[in-house]
C-alpha cells in the first residue's frame, strides 16, 4: 500500500468517525434540550410533592414518586442478595466448566434477553394471579426483581472474575479460608463492579414501564401498603402522553424528574466507584 493512499484512507476514516460521533450526539442533545425546555417550567416543589388531579393534567406526582420508590425498594431488596449469592456461587463455587454453573449461567443469559413485556406477562400470571397479590406494588417489585437479576449477576460475577488467579492462589497459599478470602479480597475488589451492577439494575427498574402495566397497575393514589396498586413514574408518562389529551406538559415534567433521578443515580455511582478505587490504589 502506498503512503499516499494510506493518507487518504486515514483522512476519510477520520471524517467518517467524527461524523458518526456527531450523529450520535445530536439526538441526545436534542432530547435532553427538549425535556429541559418543556419540562422545566412545570417543575416545582408543589409538582413533585402534591397528588395528581384531573387525570394528571394538574396537580403533581407525589404519590407516584412514592410508589416508584417502593417498587424499586422491593425489587432491589430481593434482587441484590440473590444476585450477590448467585454471582459468588458462579465464580467461586463452581469451576468455569462445571455443568451446573453452565446451566445457571446459560439460563441467566437467556433471561437477560427476555423482553420486559414478557416479564410483565409472567408477573401477571404468577404474582398477581397464582400467588394472589393482585395488581400491587409487591407484584410489580417482584417482577422487576426477576428482570434485573440477570444483569446484576452478570456484572457482579464479572467483577469477581477479573480478580486475578494469582490473587486467589496467594490468598489460598496463605491458608486463608474461603469466607475470609471472599470477605477481604474478593468483595472489596468487586465493589466497583457490584455498584455498577446494582446501579444498572436500579436504573432498569426505575425506567421500566412495560413490565409494570399489568403487575403494579395504574392507580395514582398514595399507596398505603405494598399490597396496593401503585403507578410508577414511567407508567405515568406513558399514561399522560397516550391516554390523556393535554397531558403532555406534565408528561414532560415527569420525564424530566425521571431522567434527572436516573442521572443522579448514575453520577453518584461513578463518583463512589472512582473514590473507592482511589482510596485503594494509587492512580497509575
Amino acid at each position: 500500500m502506498s503512503r499516499q493512499s494510506n493518507h487518504v484512507q486515514e483522512y476519510c476514516l477520520t471524517v467518517i468517525i467524527w461524523t458518526a460521533a456527531t450523529m450520535v450526539s445530536i439526538p441526545f442533545i436534542w432530547l435532553m434540550g427538549d425535556l429541559l425546555w418543556n419540562g422545566w417550567s412545570h417543575l416545582s416543589f408543589n409538582f413533585v410533592f402534591s397528588a395528581p388531579l384531573n387525570a394528571g393534567r394538574e396537580g403533581g406526582i407525589g404519590p407516584i414518586l412514592i410508589s416508584t420508590l417502593l417498587l424499586v425498594g422491593v425489587c432491589m431488596g430481593v434482587a441484590v442478595p440473590m444476585g450477590m449469592g448467585t454471582a459468588l456461587f458462579l465464580s467461586e463455587y463452581t469451576r468455569h466448566d462445571h455443568v451446573l454453573g453452565r446451566l445457571i449461567r446459560g439460563s441467566l443469559d437467556v433471561l437477560a434477553g427476555v423482553p420486559s413485556i414478557v416479564f410483565g406477562l409472567f408477573g401477571n400470571a404468577l404474582f398477581c394471579q397464582v400467588l394472589g397479590f393482585g395488581f400491587s406494588i409487591l407484584s410489580g417489585g417482584l417482577t422487576l426483581a426477576c428482570m434485573v437479576l440477570p444483569i446484576l449477576i452478570r456484572t457482579v460475577e464479572e467483577s469477581f472474575r477479573v480478580i486475578s488467579r494469582e490473587q486467589r492462589l496467594s490468598a489460598a497459599a496463605l491458608g486463608l479460608s474461603k469466607s475470609t478470602t471472599i470477605r477481604t479480597i474478593l468483595l472489596p475488589a468487586a465493589i466497583p463492579g457490584l455498584l455498577v451492577g446494582g446501579i444498572l439494575g436500579l436504573g432498569r427498574a426505575i425506567a421500566e414501564t412495560a413490565a409494570l402495566i399489568f403487575t403494579s397497575g395504574y392507580v395514582d393514589r398514595m399507596p398505603e401498603s405494598l399490597m396496593d396498586s401503585g403507578r410508577s413514574l414511567a407508567v405515568h408518562i406513558y399514561d399522560l402522553s397516550m391516554n390523556v389529551a393535554g397531558g403532555n406538559p406534565h408528561a414532560y415534567a415527569t420525564a424530566l424528574v425521571l431522567v434527572s433521578l436516573l442521572f443522579m443515580i448514575n453520577l453518584s455511582s461513578s463518583w463512589i466507584a472512582s473514590r473507592w478505587t482511589l482510596s485503594n490504589q494509587l492512580p497509575t
Binding site: Q167, S170, A173, L174
Partner: peptide, 15 residues
C-alpha cells in the same frame, strides 16, 4: 498452607 508458604513469580500483594 500456613505451614507451607509460597510466593509466585509475579508479586501478588493484595490491593
Amino acid at each position: 498452607r500456613r505451614t507451607v508458604g509460597m510466593i509466585f513469580q509475579k508479586p501478588t500483594v493484595f490491593p
